[in-house]
Design a binder for these strands. Structure first.
Lengths: 128, 128
DNA sequence: TTCCAACCTGGAGCGCGCTCCAGGTCAAGC
DNA sequence: GCTTGACCTGGAGCGCGCTCCAGGTTGGAA
C-alpha cells in the first residue's frame, strides 16, 4: 500500500523532487519518514496532502497560508473550526477570481471577434 | 477629451505610476507623449492599450507575449493575422485555465463539505 | 563486491513583475 | 518670485516559488 520513493511521489503528485524537498523544508509537508540510510519514504497520507496542496496552489493560495492550514491540522482536532474558516475564506476568493477570469475572457473574445470582422486587409480602427 | 497626467492615467487604468513607467520602459506601451518639460501626457489611445493589458494580464498572459502583440500592432495592418492567432491561442489557454480552476474549486468545496459534516468535536478522519 | 542511478544536504541563483529609492526637475497656485 | 507637490531618471531591491548546484551517500542489480 504505502511507502513511495521520492521519484514515485514526484510522479504521482506532479511536483518535482526539488519541490517536494522544498515543501518539507519550509514545513508545509510534515517531516517525511526515512530509511535507515536517510532516504525519504512518502506515505499515502503524504500523497493525500500533496493532492490538497495542488488544489490550493492551483487556486492561488499563497504558500504561507497553506502552511498555516497544515500546521493547524497537525495541531489537532480543536483547530477544525479555524481550518474550516480558512478554506471557506479561500473559496470566496476563488469565486471572485473565477468571476474576474470570466469577465476578462469575455473581453478577450470580443477582441477576437474584432479580428474576425476585419474584411481581409482593409483600413481598420485605431483601437486594436 | 484626451491628455491625462500620469496620476490620472494611473487612477483610470488601475496600474501604479511605477508600473506605467515600467510598461513604457520595456516597450509594452509605445513612447508616451511629453510636455515641453518632459512630463508624460497619456492619450485615450494609451488608456485603451492599458485596458487591453489589464485584460491580458488578468488572464495570465506573460509580459513578453503582450509586448509581442503590441509590437505587431505597431508594425501595421499586415500583422493582423498574427495578432488574431496570438489572441486565439491565448483564449484557448484561458479556457483550459478556467476548466482547471473550476475543477479544483469543486475539490475545495468538497473539502469544505467535509468540515460541515463534522459533528462538533468528534474523532475525525486522518485525511483532513 | 562493485557499480551507478537515485538520493542526500546546504545554500546560491533565477525568472517574473513589479516596487522603491536618491537626487533632481517641472509647473500651478499664492 | 517662491513654494510645493507631482513628476523625472537610472538603477537597485524585493517577494514569490521554486530550481539548480556541488560534493557526498545509499542501496538494489549484476
Amino acid at each position: 500500500m504505502s511507502g513511495y520513493a521520492p521519484s514515485e511521489a514526484a510522479r504521482r503528485s506532479g511536483f518535482s523532487l526539488d519541490t517536494l524537498r522544498y515543501y518539507e523544508k519550509i514545513g508545509l509537508l510534515a517531516e517525511v519518514e526515512r530509511t535507515a540510510g536517510g532516504q525519504r519514504v512518502f506515505t499515502d497520507d503524504d500523497l493525500g496532502w500533496l493532492v490538497l496542496f495542488r488544489c490550493l496552489r492551483d487556486t492561488g493560495m499563497p504558500i504561507a497560508q497553506m502552511r498555516r492550514y497544515a500546521q493547524l491540522a497537525r495541531a489537532g482536532e480543536h483547530t477544525a473550526d479555524e481550518r474550516h474558516e480558512l478554506l471557506r475564506h479561500h473559496a470566496a476568493r476563488v469565486e471572485e477570481q473565477m468571476r474576474l477570469l470570466q469577465h476578462q475572457y469575455d473581453h478577450l473574445r470580443e477582441k477576437i471577434r474584432f479580428y474576425e470582422r476585419l474584411p481581409g486587409t482593409a483600413p481598420g480602427s485605431e483601437a486594436d
